[in-house]
């Protein structure tokens, strides 16, 4: 069981920053605070929360078992980033449109921003940190470096998790919108890869290099 650590920023600092931001935009600080209720309640504050509004959940993240008490509103993404310090998984749009938060749960890629931590009791979760580390890269991570499959890097963890699963899904015969024949095996063509990666947006536009990286890994597996 991993011990929960908190970032060195406290609620008071956050409120000061929030108030300063609100002041600079001409909004009253109180209105700003009321309009953005905190969904990520820190463990210290959970005690004051009514029992019906929180849940205890245990799941495995990158092979390590975690048990957490969470505000029911906590998304799986926020639990990973704010409660387990697994900040490799990124928050982009927070609405399932950009794919920066892509992780795998029970072997399937999902948007971690669109699910609640409390709904994942007993699940096996793998994030970019579990895929590989700097001294032991996953082939997809190595290929992204080799082919320069990024510019700013913010969407990259989601792209890599999604790319790995894209090849798995093709291998498993799961059809896509560009699959011509539903009865035979599916070939990992450029069209198939592009279609399956459409849930991962790269604002820097590194798409051609991302495709090259995925093709490289596909070749290694062949």
């Amino acid at each position: 069981m991993s011990k929960e650590k908190m970032f060195e920023i406290n609620r008071r600092d956050l409120m000061i920053v929030g108030a300063a931001t609100a002041a600079s935009t001409g909004l009253p600080a109180t209105a700003y605070a009321e309009a953005t209720p905190e969904a990520v309640v820190k463990p210290d504050d959970l005690a004051s929360l009514d029992d019906t509004l929180k849940s205890t959940v245990s799941f495995t993240v990158n092979g390590e078992k975690h048990e957490l008490s969470v505000d029911n509103r906590t998304t799986l993404l926020d639990a990973l980033r704010e409660r387990m310090q697994l900040t490799g998984t990124k928050k982009g749009c927070d609405h399932g449109q950009c794919g920066a938060c892509t992780i795998t749960v029970n072997g399937r890629r999902i948007n971690s921003c669109l699910t609640l931590a409390a709904l994942h009791d007993g699940d096996e979760i793998v994030t970019i940190e579990g895929l590989g580390q700097p001294d032991n890269l996953h082939p997809m991570q190595a290929a992204f470096i080799e082919h320069d499959g990024y510019q700013c890097g913010y969407c990259t963890p989601g792209q890599i998790c999604s790319a790995k699963e894209t090849l798995e899904e093709i291998k498993a015969g799961i059809p896509s919108n560009v699959t011509k024949d539903l009865s035979g095996p599916i070939e990992a063509t450029d069209d198939e890869i592009r279609e399956r990666m459409s849930g991962n947006i790269c604002r820097c536009g590194a798409y051609s290099n991302i495709l090259a990286a995925i093709n490289d890994v596909k070749g290694q597996n062949a």
Partner: peptide
């Protein structure tokens, strides 16, 4: 896929791989 292919085609025309998994 074999008996109701219009259903498979409609499903894969919607959303993204991540969303369809969930």
């Amino acid at each position: 896929r074999r008996d109701y292919p219009v259903l498979t085609r409609a499903l894969v025309a919607g959303a993204t791989g991540q969303l369809r998994n969930k």
